[in-house]
């Protein structure tokens, strides 16, 4: 059990650092989502199921959905797609 806790905590720190370092906003949101999921597991291990439910619903669910919508609104997702397409085309040629 202790090993799992350590692994989860290390994963949490890695996620937190990765969110602030990553350049792609979409990736950042996805990493943030996984951060929330791990956090909710840790809340269960710390014996506070109330917080776990709320963290899972709000942190991983609603916040990420809102982030995705905001990214779509400002056209960031489209831009990333275009970039990826260009890169793949360039690699094909």
């Amino acid at each position: 059990m202790l090993i799992i806790e350590w692994l989860l905590l290390i994963f949490l720190i890695v996620c937190a650092v990765a969110v602030s370092i990553t350049k792609n906003l979409l990736n950042a949101v996805i990493i943030f989502m996984s951060y929330s999921l791990v956090m909710s597991v840790i809340w269960v291990l710390l014996r506070s199921p109330d917080l776990a439910i709320t963290e899972a619903a709000v942190g991983a669910g609603v916040t990420s959905v809102l982030f995705f919508l905001a990214l779509r609104r400002i056209g960031q997702m489209q831009r990333d797609n275009d970039k990826n397409k260009k890169i793949s085309e360039a690699s094909k040629n």
């Binding site: 109330d50 439910i53 709320t54 619903a57």
Partner: peptide, 17 residues
């Protein structure tokens, strides 16, 4: 049981979404 207005409301909102 664990839970309550806030978490339940969040679940309901996902159904609407």
């Amino acid at each position: 049981t664990p839970g309550g207005g806030f978490s339940g409301g969040a679940v309901l909102s996902t159904a609407l979404i």
